[in-house]
């Protein structure tokens, strides 16, 4: 990489950071429990809107993994999410009614919070419907992983988005509060992922899965990106450039091996397709707050009207991380 593009990326990073700094005024602190954070705590950052139903299980899942503090930006919920979160002793809550889209889909807000509070910590950035799975997650807490990453001098950990869906129409089984959504949406596409390399930022661009198969068969260019780097040992100079798909400085994006080996990686199980999805996508279409003119949501909406079943006979039912490892969706690398 030449000096020019290297400098260009540096400017870009500075720009995202300045932007995050400016956007800090949009979010208002509701409850701030950050004084409880100890120096080695693992922190989780999330933006959400109207997720009251999903929150209890979401918090439980990550508490069980060993996340110690949650940073939540509430983007104008009116379903009681805010009140619920205020009562949680390990949650610090911010509120905003500003535009999600103009905060680059929440990235600016979270970049600011991470810059402010994440420095020196392992930080996990996910959505409320994403569940982080890593090698040995059934026997080792997340701290074991971050300790190992520290010992191996690795600063960022990749976890591809794996879209989960139920068998049968997506609104057939209602999701109940506190329930594990993967009990309903327990199927996934095991091997139709396309990898390409982004030469400027150095990250992989991965598309595929059920969304590409069902919604974007005629327009693959627009299929959503699935590559994510949610777990990072944060430094205040870092910035997420586009959602959690890529980071700056670009070295953090090199989560893959280029010499034939496999680095350790995980998956984010994406339980988006539940019965709540229909309503949600309608709402999102009205708000027009999503990527590329909410093109994605329009495609979902149209398609699911006529054929609401995403399941096919080659769909794989989720068992555990070892299954994902065997299928080649994630890897243990040299962690044994």
């Amino acid at each position: 990489m030449g000096i020019v593009s290297s400098y260009r990326l540096r400017l870009q990073r500075k720009r995202w950071r300045i932007r995050a700094f400016r956007k800090r005024r949009e979010i208002k602190s509701i409850t701030n429990r950050t004084n409880k954070i100890r120096s080695k705590d693992i922190l989780l950052f999330v933006t959400m809107r109207n997720e009251r139903l999903r929150l209890p299980y979401f918090l439980k899942y990550y508490r069980d993994l060993g996340v110690q503090h949650f940073f939540v930006v509430d983007n104008g919920s009116d379903d009681g999410s805010g009140e619920y979160l205020m009562d949680q002793s390990d949650v610090s809550l911010w509120w905003t009614s500003a535009s999600y889209k103009r905060a680059r889909f929440g990235v600016d807000w979270l970049n600011w919070l991470q810059m402010r509070h994440g420095h020196g910590h392992w930080t996990l950035v996910v959505d409320v419907d994403e569940f982080f799975v890593y090698p040995f997650c059934d026997t080792r807490p997340i701290r074991a992983l971050t300790d190992w990453l520290d010992a191996s001098s690795i600063k960022s950990f990749s976890a591809m988005l794996l879209d989960m869906y139920p068998k049968g129409p997506i609104h057939a089984v209602p999701y109940l509060e506190g329930q594990n959504p993967l009990e309903i949406a327990s199927w996934f596409d095991s091997g139709n992922y396309m990898c390409q390399k982004n030469n400027l930022h150095g990250n992989l661009w991965i598309q595929g899965g059920v969304r590409a198969r069902v919604f974007f068969g005629d327009n693959p260019e627009r299929a959503p990106a699935l590559n994510k780097i949610p777990l990072v040992k944060w430094h205040r100079d870092y910035a997420y450039a586009s959602s959690t798909h890529m980071l700056l400085p670009r070295g953090l994006n090199l989560v893959y091996d280029e010499w034939g080996g496999e680095k350790a990686s995980g998956c984010l199980l994406h339980a988006k397709f539940l019965d709540t999805f229909d309503e949600k996508s309608k709402e999102e279409l009205d708000r027009k707050q999503h990527y590329a003119n909410s093109h994605e949501y329009r495609a979902y909406h149209e398609h699911l009207q006529e054929k609401p079943d995403l399941w096919c006979k080659w769909s794989e039912k989720y068992i555990n991380w070892r299954q994902l490892e065997i299928l080649g969706l994630m890897s243990k690398g040299n962690w044994a």
Binding site: M160, Y193, E262, G333
Partner: peptide
Amino acid sequence: QAIDRRTRGRSGLVMQSRFPNDGWE
């Protein structure tokens, strides 16, 4: 096996943490 996974990987697999350069597959 862990060392092998890390250094040689699984033949024919291209994924988020294995993206071999030409000739290193």
